[in-house]
């Protein structure tokens, strides 16, 4: 009998492993979708994005401070448009 139990033990282990994965995955996912966790991750992402945007804004202003000529400003800016498409944010420039 012990031999039989041992022979099929692999199947038992595999089934326990699958059930465990299902349960752990469930608890992991459920813990991830609490409002507290989501709040934290959103706050983190907002900070990250803001820093990113500020960096870009700084780069843009630095670049244009060096060539302050209205017409050229517009053209060159537009020429760089393609590279800016993947920023996941849009921006506008207006005169004061």
């Amino acid at each position: 009998m012990t031999i039989i139990f041992k022979k099929y033990l692999n199947n038992l282990f595999v089934s326990i492993a699958f059930f465990l994965i299902a349960i752990l995955f469930f608890y992991y996912q459920e813990s991830k979708i609490t409002i507290d966790n989501l709040h934290c991750s959103l706050q983190k992402e907002i900070f990250l994005k803001e820093n990113l945007i500020n960096n870009y804004l700084k780069k843009i202003t630095d670049f244009y401070k060096s060539i302050i000529h209205g017409k050229i400003f517009k053209m060159i800016f537009l020429q760089n448009y393609l590279q800016m498409k993947d920023w996941h944010f849009s921006f506008m420039i207006k005169t004061n």
Binding site: F5, K7, L12, S15, I16, F18, F19, F25, F26, I33
Partner: peptide, 29 residues
């Protein structure tokens, strides 16, 4: 808040596999 459908599918897959292996074990014995 509910688990996304994708996550539920993953859990379902593991549940079915677990059930089948457990059944194989039972039947083996």
């Amino acid at each position: 808040l509910h688990l996304s459908e994708k996550n539920i599918y993953i859990i379902l897959l593991f549940f079915i596999l677990g059930f089948i292996f457990f059944s194989s074990y039972l039947f083996g014995i």
